[in-house]
Design a protein around this nucleic acid. Structure first.
Length: 1043
RNA sequence: GGGCGGUUAGCUCAGCGGUAGAGCACUACGUUGACAUCGUAGGGGUCACUGGUUCGAUCCCAGUACCGCCCA
């Protein structure tokens, strides 16, 4: 064997052997009915593994390997996520970088093909990276959240798509999915709706502008402000109401000004109209002043402008007060440039404000209230223009130039122009919503979207965690889970993207609707009626019908509900699929026109078009547990491995993913998806900062694996995986555990040098010597502690248990074995060592699979199974020989104390000493006798033997052990003062200990209240400490005589 | 503003009712001896603060201070 383990060389070779032998396949090495299944949280297919993945997958691998070695029927299901928005972004960037035609130029189908190509190219990345880590996934079952989708290339078959579509249709039919026009978070960069979870609220430097909204018709009122005690502090006659806003450009879409009902300042003008101070002077819009509970009288002026189409709070107010919502922007976040001229649009809005007419939501949406000079502008440019225009007109609220609220631009009080008037533009921190992918400001936007009625499916997901069906660890995350689910909002699941599962819904015109009159009442259309149908705009503009189905073939039948009631010949119409609404209009027009000529009803068509949107990625990944197991088919794997055992994931996706999987699995198959959710902490850099590309503090797990080996990286992460707290990763720590692998390697090398690799029987049965009996017991203790730790997901305890045992094995067992190799117990020692090493390798394997597999192969001529399938031990207390334990503990204590004295007294190492035995009880005397070989072989203690004596030489250092006292005959070599100091220190500590213990024992209440075992333990401890104290005090007294 | 968590050795962190621990760092000694990617020994702590519960509190409870994170 070499002196060190060459991880770089070995890892690939070993992984290949595991793979070739099918070691990771579902059910491999199974010898019991017990199953264990774990679903990988699917990484983004175009992504790269970061430290969080390394951590997460290490923990999953540990559990998987552990269960597999225990003979359970084990599945670790791997796969990747299509990650809609993220992947579309990656591919678009790639097309740009490689100077290929862009997304829009390519068109949907060609672009989607490009994404598939990218998927196929990058799929190997994730797999390769997980392999480097040693992840023992069943790669033969690798899944993808979009497998089997239309357009998927060869080799990308599978039925995940079927599962997703089936669930959508079922949930739609059950009323759990609905379509509606709602205010949603709109990402102007990607031009899609996103869910509220994909919005990051970031505090930025912003401004609060204060503007005057003049009252209509020259109305004035007494504006009175009072202090807390009700004393008047301000009274003036005003012809306006003051409004504060951080988003002046949205003023164009205001539908009202709201004040709190209790706000006395504005009571005189509630119900009156005021003017929006922007837009062409001739066509200023008037809006009503209303009351609502929403405005906070103590914030700003207390009056709030209501822009229902561009603010979530305003939306609620507008809904409550039936205030029209006017959308101002297009999908790119630019000011609208469509529809009627401003003058006409404003006239309609005026009529609404004055109560002369009402608008449906859809009608309001068609009205573009952006003045011509602002149409098509970027929203932030428009903001600046609006501010400029209002200020020029003198409708900005003014203050002094040195008003500190102006922030950095405020004049200093001693400057000349400090008293000059200035528009009141407060500089202040505001929370702005940003897209988590696009990093642009999100715009609340009124659009038609699909939603999951989460309130209807959240119940079982909450109940499962409440009643323990699914356990969340660490416990604190339960509260987070409850808190979110108890206040859950509808989930917007439609995305205006191309990469994803296209929503299985088709639309058609609602021909049964208003506007059609059958003149003759004969149930048949004559030519004039058909012509009227064609020209009847309201028919084609009006409501649409839609149906959800897994395919067009099925959906076409569903449109029978529209057609059946139609007069002849329309009910003969054939349902055909067209690309979109515009094509549908053309198709139906052409079809009817043709009919008027040939009167052939068989040529009539009823065109339907499919929803172009795709589903939120999390909708499909929410089905990961059942989808990967072949649902909706009743597969064997589904029966065997579902519900899954454990989900290991980061806290950042509890809402995105965990909560939704809970809801979706219950909504779909009525079962909990996993028994336990283990939420691991965040991996930070060594300074505690979150690793991020922009900070440049990202540790690449693969680089670490290259440098230190996968086992060291894995062991580090495991040792730091204490529940509930973030871990700060430093390379120093990894290096420490790399050194640990070297230690293990050399322990095996020692065994090799001593012929241990060649023993025929590797069992604990041959042990007769106490050293061998002792290590067997230590192995058993380790196995018990390890299993307990792993069963409780206490990964750090598992790692530390193994670490400590490995050092015990090396420092004590291997050292003690050295002299024994020359004695008559050499054979049993080799056998025991071989067994113990095997056990150590087996127990370390889940955490450090590579080096243990390598040593497993090297350390025996031929093995029945690889380490990956080695039999996990089950032995326990029966392997512990208490006498051997007591004996070895005594020997170790003697050796340690001797080493300590020598070290402290700076006794030269070559100086072997014969211990002077002042007193020793028979039990301990026997222990010495039985282990004299070991005691005298310890190089650090340097004990030559023992001589009984009545009195120690003056100034000789004293060693007190259980049952006796020894002295080191070193009076000439050591400094009596130093020895005195050493003894005093130890005595002081013992006195403190004994004092505490005796105080406790003397307290009658302690004896009354404490458990019997505690009392007994305390008594024993007090006795042994007292004895040691007495011995050392005696020694100290003797030393004092000397002085 | 609401919620969650943290404060233990120089650093990073375990422990969580009854001897305060690990790794790294530090100091001294040691290299033909399985391992210098090493060994041996050592120094280093009013377990944030203030109260309470208890025979007993680093641990449980309440409050204070500071630090993080999540949600508005």
């Amino acid at each position: 064997m070499d002196k060190t383990f060459d991880a770089h060389e070995a890892e690939h070779r070993i992984y290949a052997r595991w793979e070739e032998s099918g070691a990771f396949k579902a059910g491999a090495n199974a010898s019991s009915d017990e199953t264990f299944s774990i679903m990988i949280p699917p990484p983004n297919v175009t992504g790269a593994l970061h430290m969080g993945h390394a951590f997460n997958n290490t923990l999953q691998d540990i559990l998987t390997r552990w269960h597999r070695m225990r003979g359970h029927d084990t599945l670790w299901q791997p796969g990747t996520d299509h990650a809609g928005i993220a992947t579309q972004m990656v591919v678009e960037r790639y097309l740009m970088e490689t100077q290929q035609p862009g997304r829009r130029e390519l068109g949907r189908e060609a672009f989607t093909q490009k994404v598939w190509e990218q998927k196929v190219r990058s799929r190997g990345n994730i797999k390769g990276q997980l392999e480097r880590l040693g992840a023992s996934c069943d790669w033969s079952r690798e899944a993808f959240t979009m497998s089997g989708a239309p357009g998927a290339p060869e080799g990308e078959d599978g039925n995940f798509h079927d599962a997703v579509i089936k669930v959508f249709v079922k949930m739609y039919e059950d009323g759990l999915i609905y379509r509606g026009k709602r205010l949603v978070n709109w990402d102007p960069h990607f031009e899609t709706a996103i869910s509220d979870l994909e919005v990051e609220n970031i505090e930025v430097d912003g401004h609060m502008w204060h503007f005057k909204y003049p009252l209509a018709d020259g109305v004035t009122y007494e504006y009175v402000e009072k202090d807390e005690d009700g004393n008047e502090v301000l009274r003036e006659t005003r012809d306006y109401i003051s409004i504060a806003t951080t988003r002046p450009e949205t003023m164009l879409g205001d539908g009202a000004v709201a004040v709190h009902p209790s706000d006395e300042r504005y009571a005189p003008i509630v119900g009156k109209l005021c003017e929006i101070p922007v837009g062409p002077k001739d066509h200023r819009r008037l809006i009503p002043i209303i009351t609502d509970e929403y405005p906070d009288p103590d914030f700003g002026s207390g009056a709030v402008k209501i822009t229902g189409a561009h603010d979530f709070n305003d939306y609620q107010v507008a809904k409550r007060g039936s205030i029209p919502m006017y959308r101002l922007m297009d999908t790119k976040g630019d000011m609208r440039d469509d529809g009627l001229p401003y003058e006409d649009a404003a006239a309609v809005a005026m009529a609404v404000a004055q109560g002369d007419r009402t608008l449906t939501e859809a009608e309001a949406d068609t009205i573009n209230l952006v003045p011509e000079d602002l149409r098509g502008l970027d929203r932030f440019v428009a903001r600046a223009r609006v501010v400029e225009q209002i200020t020029e007109e003198g409708l900005a609220v003014m203050t002094r130039a040195d008003d500190p609220r102006l922030g950095l631009v405020a004049a200093k009080p001693d400057e000349d122009h400090a008293a000059d008037p200035a528009p009141l533009v407060e500089a202040k921190k505001i929370m702005a919503p940003y897209g988590d992918r696009s990093k642009v400001v999100i715009e609340p936007m009124l659009t038609d979207q699909w939603f999951v009625a989460t309130d209807k499916i959240v119940g079982p997901a909450l109940e499962a965690v409440r009643n323990g069906t699914t356990e969340i660890l660490p416990e604190q995350h339960k509260k987070v889970y409850f808190n979110w689910l108890e206040n859950i909002e509808p989930w917007c699941i439609s995305r205006q993207l191309w990469w994803g599962h296209q929503i299985p819904v088709w639309y058609g015109f609602d021909l049964t609707g208003k506007g059609f009159v059958d003149d003759e009442g004969d149930g048949a259309l004559d030519t004039p009626e058909i012509m009227r149908l064609l020209s009847e705009q309201s028919l084609l503009k009006g409501d649409e019908r839609h149906h959800a189905a897994p395919s067009f073939d099925i959906v076409s039948g569903l449109f029978g509900d529209v057609l059946a009631d139609l007069p002849t010949p329309l009910h003969h119409a054939r349902v055909v699929e067209v690309a979109n609404r515009a094509e549908a209009i053309d198709a139906i027009a052409a079809s009817l026109a043709k009919y008027t000529v040939d009167q052939d009803p068989t040529n009539l068509v009823y065109p339907v078009w499919r929803d172009p949107d795709v589903l939120d990625t999390w909708f499909s990944s929410g089905l990961w547990p059942i989808g990967t197991l072949g649902w909706p088919e009743e597969t064997d794997e589904l029966k065997k491995y579902f519900p899954t055992s454990v989900l290991i994931t980061g806290f950042d996706i509890i809402f995105f993913w965990v909560a939704r999987m809970m809801m979706m699995q219950y909504a779909t198959v009525g079962q909990h998806p996993f028994d336990t959710v283990y939420v691991h902490a965040l991996v930070r850099d060594e300074k505690g900062k979150k690793m991020s590309k922009s900070l440049g503090n990202v540790l690449d797990p693969l680089e670490l694996v290259d440098e230190y080996g996968a086992d060291a990286v894995r062991f580090t992460l495991t040792a730091m995986a204490a529940m509930g707290r973030d871990l700060k990763l430093s390379t120093q720590r990894i290096q420490g555990y790399r050194n640990f692998t070297t230690k293990l390697w050399n322990a095996a090398r020692f065994a090799e040098m001593n012929g241990v690799f060649d023993v025929a029987t590797r069992t604990p049965d041959a042990a007769t010597h106490s050293v061998n009996k002792w290590i067997i017991g230590e192995v058993a203790k380790t196995r018990m502690a390890l299993d307990e730790a792993l069963a409780a997901f206490r990964f750090n305890d598992a790692a530390n248990t193994l670490y400590a045992f490995t050092y015990t094995y090396c420092d004590w067992y291997l050292e003690f074995s050295k002299p024994l190799m020359q004695t008559e117990v050499a054979d049993e020692t080799r056998q025991t060592m071989a067994w113990a090493l095997d056990q150590l390798l087996i127990m370390l394997h889940p955490i450090m699979p590579f080096i243990t597999e390598e040593l497993w192969g090297l350390s025996a001529p031929s093995r029945a199974k690889m380490c990956v399938h080695a039999d996990w031990p089950t032995y326990g207390p029966e392997m512990i020989d208490e006498n051997a334990v007591a004996e070895l503990n005594w020997v170790r204590d003697l050796i340690e104390k001797t080493r300590s004295v020598r070290g402290l007294m700076n006794v030269p190492k070559k100086e072997k000493v014969t211990l002077l035995q002042l007193a020793l009880d028979p039990a301990q005397d026997a222990m010495w006798a039985a282990n004299e070989t070991l005691i005298t072989a310890d190089r650090e203690a340097g004990i030559a033997g023992r001589d009984s004596t009545d009195t120690a030489p003056k100034g000789a250092p004293t060693i007190a052990v259980e049952g006796g006292t020894f002295a080191l005959p070193l009076e000439g070599l050591i400094d009596a003062g130093a020895e005195k100091a050493r003894l005093e220190k130890t005595v002081g500590k013992l006195q403190k200990d004994v004092g505490g213990l005796e105080g406790r024992l003397k307290n009658p209440k302690f004896r009354e209240n404490a458990g019997e075992d505690v009392v007994q333990e305390t008594e024993e401890l007090a006795t042994s400490k007292r004895e040691e104290l007495t011995r050392l005090e005696t020694a100290l007294a003797r030393l004092s005589e000397l002085a």
